[in-house]
């Protein structure tokens, strides 16, 4: 366990102090600030108009949901950049030798690497959480859907990280690892499109279930479904497991 946390902590430190992290989190802040302010003004204007007619608008769906969708979109591109170095660079710099000849298991290596990027990703999520939290200072809204959305987003990020890690484990080229990670993550999103292409109700239901988008929408709507949580956790487990296999395989290849 200690070795796993040592790997996680070391990687976390080196990741969050790298220029790439500064650039991405900086851009992340700018983009979110720009869009969030527009959305909140837009929301204020509309709610004033609708209040005249005796109606209300839901701040969660009209502001937070689109805010979080944007966060998701950025994570989709940023996470492969965070994970690309995890194992590919170890191989390239030959520090992989150190990990593989230390008295630790492939499972500890894979989980340690996963945790490291997950913690760095949580830094981004914390930044993203500042906006709704700031809104809470002058607005009153129900916290349930917001919390469930953030749980969903954290789980979703876990999937991206696990996929990115797997991509990084199969190559020693950092660039290739980032590209492969992005392609795999995008394809996870596009599986859902298969539903539209098939007439078979069973097949179309299947595609809907394995689509990461469908599962995420339920979190966004404030429903914490057990199936969705299990889906997310098993997707993470699957890719961490695949990574573990690839790391382990270097011992018997």
């Amino acid at each position: 366990m200690r070795a796993m946390f040592a790997i996680a902590w070391k990687d976390f430190r080196s990741l969050v102090s790298s220029p790439i992290f500064f650039v991405i989190s900086g851009l992340f802040c700018c983009l979110l600030s720009f869009t969030y302010i527009r959305q909140i003004f837009d929301f204020a204007r509309r709610s004033m108009v609708l209040a005249h007619q005796g109606q209300g608008v839901n701040i969660h769906m009209s502001v937070f949901a689109s805010h979080l969708s944007l966060v998701n979109l950025i994570l989709l591109l940023a996470i492969p950049v965070f994970t690309m170095r995890a194992l590919a660079e170890e191989k390239k710099m030959r520090t992989y030798d150190l990990l593989l000849t230390s008295p630790i298991t492939a499972t500890q290596i894979s989980f340690g690497k996963f945790l490291a990027v997950f913690m760095s990703g949580m830094v981004l999520l914390l930044i993203a959480a500042i906006y709704p939290l700031g809104t809470a200072l002058f607005a009153d809204f129900s916290w349930g859907p917001l919390i469930s959305s953030f749980i969903g987003l954290a789980l979703l990020m876990g999937i991206y990280i696990a996929i990115g890690l797997f991509a990084s484990s199969v190559t020693s080229s950092v660039i290739l690892a980032a590209f492969l990670g992005m392609v795999l993550i995008l394809s996870f999103w596009f599986i859902g499109q298969g539903a539209g292409f098939s007439d078979d109700p069973v097949l179309s239901a299947f595609f809907e279930h394995v689509s990461v988008g469908q599962q995420f929408v339920s979190f966004l709507q404030g429903t914490l479904k057990l199936t969705a949580v299990v889906y997310m956790l098993s997707a993470i487990a699957l890719f961490v497991f695949l990574t573990q296999r690839v790391v382990e395989s270097s011992r018997w290849r």
Binding site: R2, F5, M93, R94, Y96
Partner: peptide, 28 residues
């Protein structure tokens, strides 16, 4: 076993002492 590979497996972005502490955690 203590192993020194052909290319020393060191992390460039760490200080010597931090790196050695990291190694001692890895080695339990």
């Amino acid at each position: 076993i203590g192993y020194l590979p052909e290319i020393p497996p060191v992390y460039g972005d760490m200080r010597v002492i931090d790196f050695l502490k990291f190694c001692s955690r890895l080695k339990g």
